[in-house]
């Protein structure tokens, strides 16, 4: 039962105020979204066997309950090709404040998108789709809809983006798989409806969208303040 699973994970994260990337990805995967295979390591000796299993190129991210925005503190490395690089990355992550573990996963490619959710005071759960990556708030190319979403909502959200032509396969690039993107958004919207009274907002950023799949490469779930209702 998804709802029970959501509740267990979210309750456990209440005091921290947000759900860590590994836990968030486990929840999303249970909700039917694609996430990369990942392993968290706490000891440099674990790196080699995990790398052999997952394969290069690889991404590594810091896991810490004190670090919400990982890339702001140098806690995200991508395109790693060797064990030696991984060991060096581990070394530098372990010096970060509150270091708990290093998350390792194979690199996924595609167009970087953001899928998000927010509990709006007046309109309830809303879902966001936009162009993702670290520049999201610079470009602000996003569409918003009240959840739950239907197929027609997803179509109009995509059409509403300035960058929509990029998704259709701009200048010979591979088009994003529309069916996969639609499925991803609708499953996400169902997840948001199920979790609505327990969350404040969610960022899936980036979601790597290609001709085959939409894979959630990073995820963060923010929880409402402990004193009952959110003030948002």
């Amino acid at each position: 039962m998804l709802k029970t699973e959501i509740k267990t994970v979210l309750e456990a994260a209440r005091t921290r105020g947000w759900v860590s990337e590994p836990d968030a990805k486990r929840l999303l995967s249970a909700a039917g979204l694609e996430v990369p295979r990942f392993v968290t390591v706490t000891d440099p000796d674990q790196i080699e066997p995990v790398a052999a299993d997952l394969g290069f190129p690889m991404a590594a991210k810091v896991v810490s309950s004190r670090i919400v925005h990982k890339s702001d503190v140098g806690g995200v490395r991508t395109g790693i090709e060797t064990i030696r690089e991984l060991t060096a990355v581990f070394e530098s992550f372990s010096r970060l404040d509150g270091f708990e573990a290093m998350l390792m996963e194979p690199m996924v490619s595609g167009l970087e998108m953001i899928i998000g959710a927010k509990m709006d005071d007046q309109f309830g759960p809303v879902v966001l789709l936009g162009m993702g990556g670290i520049g999201v708030e610079i470009y602000q190319d996003v569409s918003l809809r009240m959840a739950p979403l239907g197929n027609a909502d997803v179509d109009s959200m995509i059409k509403g983006l300035k960058a929509a032509p990029l998704l259709y396969g701009y200048r010979g690039r591979q088009a994003v798989n529309r069916d996969e993107l639609t499925r991803t958004l609708i499953r996400f919207s169902d997840f948001v409806m199920a979790a609505a009274d327990m969350i404040e907002s969610i960022d899936l950023n980036p979601v790597m969208c290609s001709g085959e799949k939409c894979i959630v490469a990073d995820a963060r779930i923010m929880l409402p303040p402990m004193d009952g209702h959110t003030a948002a």
Partner: peptide
């Protein structure tokens, strides 16, 4: 603290809804 909450402000949501 999230990009979504920042971009889905009260008015943006109102207008989209």
């Amino acid at each position: 603290s999230s990009h979504t909450a920042s971009m889905a402000g009260d008015y943006a949501v109102f207008s989209a809804a």
